[in-house]
Design a protein around this nucleic acid. Structure first.
Lengths: 232, 232, 232, 232
DNA sequence: AATGAATGAGTCTTCATTCAT
DNA sequence: TATGAATGAAGACTCATTCAT
């Protein structure tokens, strides 16, 4: 069996797992089901992935890779876009990704939690996770991701499309935080009873406004921001 | 057995569960352990709480209630503080809460996820959660929480300590998002290799700066902001 | 449930396990089967015994205890028997035990193997075995056993029924070795084709003769040894 | 592929298996590992050996053959040694073999157990063992072994180096029993707490003494026995 | 001859939940 | 109220063996 066929099979398993994890979550999904969905035997799943956790790490890796791909695309051809435009596309892509590929986004956040725990007390981490070949790879990939975001802001600062007084790194992480938090709670905002004057739509607008004010400054809040039109 | 004794016992169970969930997480904690820690029998745990999930909902409820208490305290006596000062205290309290009472914060975020799922597809929610008496109560409590935050911003807008062009509701949710995201990823930022010029400390400063710019506007970024000194 | 009932249930499980291990061996016996045979659920087996290995250690413990009991009985009332007579009964009992309670005897030999391994490389021992409460207890019990055998020989030496030039300890272990080896191969001797002039019966006699020569000396090989008549 | 290459491959597999079984035991060794160690594929292992059990029987056969070889060497050139000298060498070789080639010795004892079971209830024997071509061959080889031992004693009786009143067959089996038992428990004797006055060394001496008394009689226990010096 | 992907029955073990007392 | 013995459905993972290539 060639390398290609093997990769195809790996992919098949991954897709089955992604589908089921999306549907029911990691815990509720049984390896048996993944095998059935991929139309192979349970044993073969374990032939390709050392454990259920390894499989999840593989999914996480795929998630980070897809996101990296998306980020790279946002940059477009060199000099084609201003840094702010790139950031706009980045934000837009990110939120679409978080919405449409929830498993991936959740997996990435879960991975960030692992990194946290890794520093606090490595011993407490599930060894099945720690031993996953994908775990190590993820550390690098996730780093690449952050670099892309930071690069976008740096570019914007240089080309004047983003406020010059910003610190690229901390700004990126702050904006990322905003988006993560937004994804986390946007779903529940629409439940707010009438008493609170907000709905998904109005919050989205408010959120976007503040998001870009951070990049451009709030000195000209009245100026129209056409570039935002692309967002969401 | 009087009402008082009953409440004491409930409290004992809750405390045991909180302690264990903090230590090992929901899944890794066995009901047996909770019972043992509370020095009662497993059966009695089920007498007071319908299921492990019910117990977790009770914890979530307690978390929301504690946070509400904290928020209320931030307001202080009427007219004592400006809206901005209240928001500052609110943010500070929130981040302390998220750090020191991680179980509660996680539980609250988990609950927001449930609310989200509730709207998407009620059927998929774990019935043990849905049937918990605490679940319904939580919907209201959580709402109270949001109202307090929004009130702080409204107050600030009225008393001039916060930018007048802000929409209180969406600003509150945006700031909340920022904090949630911050809690989520601050742990992993310190792992960034040297290439990325950031560490926990420098990001915290950058984050705070942007957080308050949102409330006050960035037109005067050079002006010192003593009120921020209290934060973190 | 009283202590008595609990012990009864433990006993029931143990008996079921003993029966099945005798029939099919440790590996071939499934915990499920033990449960079924004891007419309880699989879970309850694990309630009483931490693991299959723990169960096996419990059986071993029971085996050693039964053997100790048998040994104690062989001593009879003080001054009732000579040391040689005790040894005769001891040998007889031992071989009956090894034949009739093969599981126990095998378990004991297995345990001796564990002790060996324990000294060579403790780390390689199955932790399920090492953590069994019965393992520790066994070390002591097994020691008691050896002491009884040695005591019999010492007594014989003192009362003149056993050769005075023997070293009680090494003689006991040597005789024990003989019996262990005898049990191990006696089954296969009867398979020897006609060319070899031996069968189970004739070897047994030869074995007994040599066994007692060790204790009494071979200077009087022609003297009848009435005491041996009891053996087998 | 020529017969030679085939045999080489078989040998390679066997060596790999012997090494792994020594290290981890039969159960803990996976066929996969054997294949990897032999640098061939798992499938090929099954081409040469019908089953894992068949492989074990092949190892057993090799063990018996090696032991036979060793026994043959002990005889030396005709008339070169007395029967007692041969027995001494035989015993020495046997114990070295049991110590240094533990897998083989264990395999042989396991085989004797199979023979035993074979007579009791053939049906209960693992068919994979029963169908092994090596099983049948073993029955004969094992028989040859016994014959060699018996021959040594007969020779000794004839040449006067061994007591004339001994029955060669049963004496051989008795001595073999002793050695088997000795191998079995010598490892655990050193664990005996101080209360029992024995250690590995002192028992070894006691054991040797009794072993040779059986062959020579105990009438002259004080006479030095230079021939024993070679033992162990 | 040789490979190694594929199978799937088999196994131990866990644990939320119940219920007789 | 309170206990804790009892249940049994899961579930992750293993591995000897087969077979298409």
């Amino acid at each position: 069996m060639g390398v290609y066929e093997r990769q195809q099979k790996e992919k098949k398993i991954l897709e089955a797992a992604i589908h089921l994890f999306s549907e029911k979550g990691f815990h509720a999904t049984k390896v048996d089901e993944v095998a059935k969905k991929a139309r192979i035997s349970k044993g073969l799943v374990y032939f390709y992935y050392k454990s259920k956790e390894d499989l999840y790490m593989a999914i996480t890796k795929k998630g980070v890779d897809e996101l990296k791909e998306i980020f790279n695309k946002a940059f477009g051809k060199p000099k084609e876009k201003t840094g702010l435009e790139v950031m706009t596309d980045l934000a837009e892509s990110y939120l679409s990704f978080a919405r449409d590929k929830k498993v991936f986004h959740d997996a990435i956040l879960h991975f960030l939690g692992l990194l946290d725990q890794y520093q606090v007390d490595k011993e407490k981490l599930n060894p099945l996770i720690l031993n996953s070949q994908y775990f190590t790879k993820l550390v690098q990939s996730h780093h690449d991701l952050a670099k892309l975001g930071i690069k976008a802001i740096s570019t914007g600062i240089k080309d004047g499309s983003i406020r010059p007084d910003l610190h690229a790194e901390s700004t990126f992480y702050t904006l990322w935080s905003m988006m993560i938090g937004y994804c986390r709670i946007s779903g529940s905002v629409s439940l707010e009873p009438g008493e609170i004057k907000i709905n998904t739509e109005s919050w989205k607008n408010g959120f976007i406004k503040l998001f870009f004010e951070i990049l451009k400054g709030s000195s000209t809040p009245s100026v129209s921001q056409p570039v935002q039109g692309k967002l969401f």
